[in-house]
Every structure is written in structure tokens, then in C-alpha cells.
Amino acid sequence: MSRKVIAELENISKYYYIGKNIVVKALEDISLKIYSRDILIIMGPSGSGKSTLMNILGTLDRPSKGRIIIEGTDVTDLSEKELYKFRLKNIGFVFQFFNLIGTLTALENVMLPMILLGNLDEETARIKASELLKIVGMSDKLNSRPSQLSGGQQQRVAIARAIANDPPLVLMDEPTGNVDMASEAVILKLIKILNKYLGITFVIVTHNPEVSLIGTRMISIRSGRLFESDKVPTIDLEKALDERKILELQLEFFEREIVSLKKLLGKGLITFDDYKAELSKIRERLEMIKGALGELK
């Protein structure tokens, strides 16, 4: 069965100009398709162009040549204003240095993308954010500020923030680059679970070989050119996090989502068609989770 293409890069090049005569070719004629439910690992040494590729894919930077299509939208020529909105709905970011907003609590950090989007009321956003924090195992730190959390905990909040608006694509730049080994295992496990049961596509830039173990595809980048690797190793992370607990939390979360959706329909905030579309997505996910729980038994 052919899988859906989430994002596509067509002949992307990126040049930087130093003075009038020197041209640095950061990316050279790169084409890449990212499929739904991929965990795409991009590896490469410093200066290989992996961060540039990530920025272009995340619409934070524009290519010098080529086109980018994400979720069927050609974003290459979108205005900055259109890109803000596009990112808000379609792309989640997780950074190496977590980059949580220091003045906000963990819960508020996760609520922030929903509030920026502005299609949920405060209470619904709060409930959704706390569910997400439960999923990442941070339900006991809802009101902690980033400065009160360890690196691994901050990164888990950052992951919850990245998926707050249910984006199909999450981009991660060295997600375990600044956490200890125990936290690294938890984060990797989390990525795997979110990919498996929420169907989120991840693109992870790293130079850490351990991170590459959770990937479904791996790409090497050298001197601005891509090399796809066939071999995708796997890792057993079962011990890192209780999978059953997470699945149960997700089950609870999606059941509440259905209730919120009904409320939104009742208040006339969404159309019946949107309601039906969202409901079928949620039911699909619920079925997957129930199936996975059955397998665990």
C-alpha cells in the first residue's frame, strides 16, 4: 500500500553569499519525500547542511531554488503571515535547548500554540494541555516553571507543546542533545509511541547514533547532498516507559476529545462536516489504541 506523502522537497538548493564573490552552497539540489508515519532521521556532521534542511522544511528559512510542499500546500512562496498560520497548524518544533517560555508554566507552555491558533476556549485548551502532559508523563509538574524542571522534563513538555495543535509533522533538532541518558531513553520511547499510536510523522536531525535507532528511515547528509540508507536498525525501549499506562492515558484523552468536539458543535463553533471529519480521525486513532492494548494483553 502506498503511503501518503506528508512533505516533499523538490530540487532544493540553498546558497549563502559572503561578500560579492563567495557563494557557500549549504544544500545542493535536494529532493526528498517524507511519508506519513515516518520517523525520518537526518544524520550528518556539523556544517553538513542538516540544520539548513530542517529550517527549510520547517518553513523558517526559504530555499534559493526548488519547491516545498507540505500536506499538499506549496509553501515555497507563501508570505510570512501565511507561514505563521501554516506552521501553527501543520508543524511542531522540538529544539535541542527545549526553548520553553520561561515566564509560563509547563501547562501554559503547552496551551500556548492552541491559544495562538485561537480556536479553543481557555478551559478546553487547559484540559487538552493537561492530557498531553499526562501522555508525556508530566502530569505532576503542570504548574512548574521551566527553571524548576530538569532537561529531560523540559524536553517532554516541549514535545507536548509541539503536538498541541495536532500537527501532522513534528521536526526535532537534536531532541536528546541536552538531556541525560535516562531521559534520552524516555524521550525516544515517547517519540516511538506518539508515532505509532497518534500517527505523527517525525523528522529528527541528530548526530547521536542512538537516536537513529528509533527511525523508520535514515538519511545522511554530507556537503549539502543527501544519501538514503536502507538499513533501519531498531531498539527495544520497552523498559523505559510503561506502554500500557500511556495507551490508557491516550484512550482517556481521545474519549475526552470526542466530548469537547460535541461541545464545540453544540456551541456552533465548528461545522457539522468538520465535526464528522475530526470524529472519524479520532475514532481511527481510538481503534488503533484499543488494538494495541489488546495486543499487549
Binding site: L60, K85, R87, N99, L112, L116
Partner: peptide
Amino acid sequence: IREIGVLKAIGAND
């Protein structure tokens, strides 16, 4: 400034 960058990345407009 980093915070501004993060806000812009996650979709906050000007």
C-alpha cells in the same frame, strides 16, 4: 530574542 524566535517558529505572528 530566542523566545521571540521560538514564538515565531511555533506560529506566533508579528
